[in-house]
Write a protein that binds this DNA or RNA. Structure first.
Lengths: 230, 230
DNA sequence: CCAAAAGTGTTCAACATACACCCATGA
DNA sequence: TCATGGGTGTATGTTGAACACTTTTGG
């Protein structure tokens, strides 16, 4: 070990993932109650420690999988939090990631197998450490991104209706949107494929179902979400 | 120390700052040759280690000051890099920050006192570790931000002309811009105060000097750069 | 008087917004 | 038949892009 390195203080590196979901009405946040020594009462983001051989993204993926069984979720790096006292037990730097998932796809699995639960954004319990700051930042980032690009199909079932998609956007922004303008704008992207089926249940008339044009979408999604990578 | 913490591997946390400058023609990058043991030949971003009592942003500020004498520069967090082998000597996670400064304000001081130098973005030397990836990402982020907001007055002298500002934007994007559209757009922000002086030297006619409307600008700048904070 | 850079206005297309009516159906 | 949510079109203002000529002045 070289001298310059030896003198340095090491510290723990954690990863915390903010997982957003949508149940058709509200934006939800996935939290775990791990009953760890630190604080048995408060809930926590999907967090864990970096191990010696994995990258940050790999660690975030692994931790999310261990805590919830969720796999192959696209996690995006949000921000790194490093206030000296953010973790009162030991100096820890935490790299926060965030992702969008479809609540329906995972609800059962998560609640049955793990101590994880979906919480409405308006009714969050007390959160560990600075996790509330992380959530705040993630919401801002989500809104910002959603305002610029058609992000957010991940939050819906594979087949969904335009009114459902509109409700999602309204939940993200906490506003109402004119349905004529919304459908025109979203359809003008040509990212949606209209199906022949209708979804009944939310109305008597029923609403046409759509699917995402996967190739086009992932192209655009990547070029936006990763505008800094590559 | 609690059991859950004890088992965890610690690792070094570094900070690396990407400092952009502009000399009137080209975008420049500030690099140091610290002649450290790791590699005496290659140049490096403004990097150093996190110490136990400081936050990430404080550490980035301190390191920049120690290496260049620059103070009170607004550093924005860019991304955290943590590939297991990015630093071959020891596992290190690096939090990258970036900033814009005006080359003229600092050129002397930096070169005289420190082993730091400005490099044209097109003629970068070999860089330490994954610093080139960091620079690439910072450029993308800079372009993205500049495309959305009037960022970048930091890169110019306090008094500057519209043509100078245009050259800066052209350097950031590597394109040419129509001067009529450019001046209309930039003036429509009402962020510039026209002075009665003219700057001669770049032309016989001379171009009017402008100043930034500081209050308005810092308002807008903060609400954009920190769209995730607060 | 001429070369070189500064400064300025108009037109057109694309896009965002505001707004109101008919449709299909289950109860 | 009626209440509920689904679906569509038009008019208006705003914004970004393309484009060319006149002004100033040092040499």
């Amino acid at each position: 070990m070289l001298a310059q390195y030896q003198q340095q203080t090491e510290c723990l590196v954690a990863l915390d993932s903010i997982i957003f979901g949508f149940d058709g009405l509200e934006l939800k946040l996935l939290l775990v109650n791990r009953g760890v020594e630190v604080d048995k009462q408060t809930w926590s983001l999907m967090g864990g420690w970096l191990t010696p051989t994995e990258s940050l993204a790999q660690a975030a993926d692994r931790i999310l999988y261990e805590l919830t069984g969720l796999r192959d979720i696209y996690l995006e790096q949000l921000h790194t939090f490093g206030e000296p006292l953010r973790d009162p037990v030991q100096r820890t730097v935490s790299v926060a990631y965030f992702a969008l998932v479809n609540v329906q796809d995972y609800e059962q699995k998560i609640s049955d197998t793990f101590h994880a639960n979906w919480f409405s954004l308006n009714e969050l319990p007390e959160l560990l450490f600075d996790h509330r700051d992380m959530v705040k930042m993630a919401i801002k980032s989500l809104r910002y991104k959603a305002s610029q690009h058609p992000i957010g199909f991940e939050l819906l079932p594979q087949k969904f209706t335009i009114p459902q998609l509109q409700k999602l956007y309204e939940a993200i922004f906490g506003t109402t949107i004119d349905k004529r303008n919304f459908s025109r704008k979203i359809l003008s992207t040509n990212l949606l494929l209209k199906l022949d089926e209708k979804h009944r249940g939310s109305s008597k008339k029923g609403a046409f179902l759509y699917e995402v044009n996967k190739e086009k979408y992932s192209q655009q999604f990547n070029s936006f979400m990763n505008f800094m990578a590559s």
